[in-house]
Computed example of a mutant assay.
Amino acid sequence: MADSTVPVDVISAEALLNSGQTETNKLLNQLVPSFNFPQPSLTDGTDSLRPATLRGLAPDQVLVLINGKRRHQSALVNLNGSVGRGSTAVDLNTIPPLAIERIEVLRDGAASQYGSDAIAGVINVQLKKGMGGRAQATFGKYITKMEDVGQVGTVSLTTGLSDNP
């Protein structure tokens, strides 16, 4: 894609695994310059399904493809003070990073080719096709010497498809 006339970012599975993030939206926020994944708290249902934007446009103006096929948007309409108020978004966090072979992000309007839901751009997630499995565990701990503050520890498990059985 080096000879493309539009800005396309291709993110490999290796870059995804080396980023240290466990959520697909956070990975894209870290690796794609025009991708924005704000994390508001206590704003209606966006605590569980957080909207993401591309090029500062509404979440429903980003077309998300999985292996080249359209991914449905969620049923949650963003209200109150959340990002993309009045729109719906695709929940990219339902796709574990371990199952992704690469992500292609077209950071330019593509409405003439894909339709009005691609005004901000297109995100094409290519999934791994291999048989087998892979698991990843992360551990984090908050240590403090302040009185009356508890020590917090957490473990996060992720599973997905792998090319190597």
Rank of each mutant, 00 (worst) to 15 (best):
M1D: 11
A2N: 15
D3H: 13
T5A: 14
T5V: 15
V6Y: 11
V6T: 11
P7V: 10
P7E: 12
D9G: 10
S12W: 05
E14P: 04
L16T: 10
S19N: 09
S19V: 13
G20Q: 07
Q21D: 07
T22D: 11
E23V: 07
T24R: 00
T24F: 04
N25P: 11
K26L: 02
L27S: 08
L28M: 12
L28H: 04
L28Q: 06
Q30H: 11
L31P: 03
V32N: 02
V32H: 03
V32M: 09
V32I: 15
N36P: 01
F37R: 01
F37A: 09
F37M: 04
Q39V: 11
P40C: 06
S41G: 13
L42V: 05
L42M: 10
T43Y: 08
T43K: 12
T46A: 12
D47L: 13
D47R: 11
L49M: 09
R50K: 05
R50Y: 00
P51Q: 11
A52V: 00
T53A: 08
L54S: 00
R55W: 02
G56A: 07
L57E: 03
L57I: 05
L57D: 01
A58W: 12
A58L: 13
P59E: 02
Q61T: 12
V62D: 09
V62A: 07
L65W: 06
L65V: 14
I66H: 06
N67T: 08
R71T: 14
Q73I: 13
S74A: 13
S74Q: 12
A75C: 04
A75S: 12
L79A: 06
N80K: 03
S82A: 10
S82Q: 02
G84V: 02
G84K: 02
R85F: 03
R85A: 05
T88S: 05
T88M: 08
D91M: 09
N93L: 07
P96F: 00
I100V: 06
I100K: 00
E101P: 07
R102T: 01
R102C: 03
I103A: 03
E104A: 06
R107F: 05
G109N: 10
Q113I: 15
Y114H: 10
Y114C: 12
G115T: 00
D117V: 10
D117T: 04
A118I: 07
N124E: 02
K129P: 15
G130P: 14
M131L: 15
A135M: 04
Q136Y: 10
Q136I: 09
F139R: 01
G140V: 07
G140A: 08
K141V: 13
K141E: 15
K145N: 14
M146G: 05
E147C: 02
D148S: 11
V149M: 05
G150I: 03
G150C: 00
Q151F: 01
V152A: 12
T154W: 04
V155L: 14
V155E: 06
S156W: 06
T158Q: 03
T158C: 02
G160N: 08
S162E: 14
S162F: 11
